[in-house]
Write a protein that binds this DNA or RNA. Structure first.
Lengths: 203, 203
DNA sequence: CCCGATGTCTAGCAATGCTAGAATCCGGGC
DNA sequence: GCCCGGATTCTAGCATTGCTAGACATCGGG
């Protein structure tokens, strides 16, 4: 390990990040099916084999991008929750849900890598990415404190939000009425107040 | 159009069905990534080009399989709903939901073709497969008659069930607690009675 | 200044979806 | 009975995919 070793290590890490960001941009611009190892290598301005010196294969690349997505989602939800902490509890929950849905429509390719692409990761087991768990926990905490079956409610909420995102992304459910569905969902899962219909369907 | 023309037409239709059923079996047995045109042709005992005389491409084949799935799902849900018509309304709704979830776990590849695979079909538009619409309508009808926002509730229910199926299929949410989540969901979306917890997590 | 190790690229493999053009089959007219 | 024409099917191949072995370059240490 020489003196310059440090620099090379740094450069290597930078290239690592570059590969990921290029892959993500490409996916977001043209869809994941356009992300081929050749195109990716070309845009990174290295040959294909260097990709394989950083990642085990293409799947590993999309998995790494997905992991990035998990941490970003967790941060986003956490911020949203913090910002709405002073408000009525229900408003906080609603803000978090809206943030989730917005994330899904704003980064469709990223979302796809995170939640629909085939993956080896067994999420239920210990190996759940910590960031994913953190994102989930935001939902748990956003639910009223003493409510019965808080965790189960959060799971349901999580699943329902994913269902809404997944189906509307492929046009399998009308995009209109999203806000109404969200109100219904929140009312159903965290009952108590009446629906706080704020704004139209603009998200 | 000769006399034998009829027979050839029949044989052709049969081969059409054969292709679909083989594709479906193969997908169910080894996953869609194992369904290649070569393997498919081999099992049908014809060469690849005949596949393209029946379908425009591989995507068209999985779309056709998906369509089959839609009609099967619609029939299943319709039957389930009819069988539970005498019971308490909430029980009927629950039966339909359970049938949906069971369908998803029993035919994972079929379900994937129907709801997660990339597709050109714009489901929101006119071209929604009638069978899919029929399946959806079962949910609408299974909701209490005079309830407010009946259609929106059905959409939410639909999306939530898909979310549960999709996430648990890839292990992104624990399979346990499925029954509890379902109770919560039904309670939330069709409020009125108390949760009718019938049976454990065995589905 | 040269050597060895580390890093990178060229070239290629097997498999994929799809298709053009050759070969085959089969019914109908002489 | 024989042969022709159209429909049907197959062989062979293209471009592209993910991935990898082996040749090549590069650069620090003696």
């Amino acid at each position: 390990m020489s003196i310059t070793g440090n620099r090379r290590e740094r450069e290597r890490a930078q290239r690592h990040r570059l590969i990921l960001s290029v892959a993500r941009e490409l996916a977001e611009a043209e869809g994941w099916e356009a992300v081929t190892t050749r195109r990716l290598a070309e845009r990174v301005e290295y040959s294909q084999p260097v990709l394989y010196s950083h990642f085990k294969g293409k799947d590993a690349i999309v998995a790494a991008v997905a992991e990035q997505g998990f941490t970003e989602l967790a941060e986003l939800l956490g911020r949203e929750r913090a910002a709405a902490r002073g408000d009525e509890p229900r408003l906080g929950l609603r803000a978090v849900c809206r943030a989730y849905l917005r994330f899904a429509v704003e980064h469709p390719a990223l979302y796809q890598a995170m939640f629909v692409m085939p993956t080896q990761l067994a999420f239920a087991a210990e190996e759940t990415p910590p960031a994913l768990r953190a994102a989930f926990d935001v939902f748990v905490e956003a639910l009223p404190e003493g409510i019965e079956g808080r965790e189960a409610r959060a799971e349901l909420l999580w699943a329902a939000l994913h269902g809404i995102s997944a189906l509307s992304a492929t046009g399998r459910v009308p995009a209109l009425g999203e806000s109404a569905r969200l109100d219904l969902l929140i009312d159903g899962i965290a009952p108590g107040g009446q629906a706080s219909r704020s704004g139209g369907d603009g998200l």
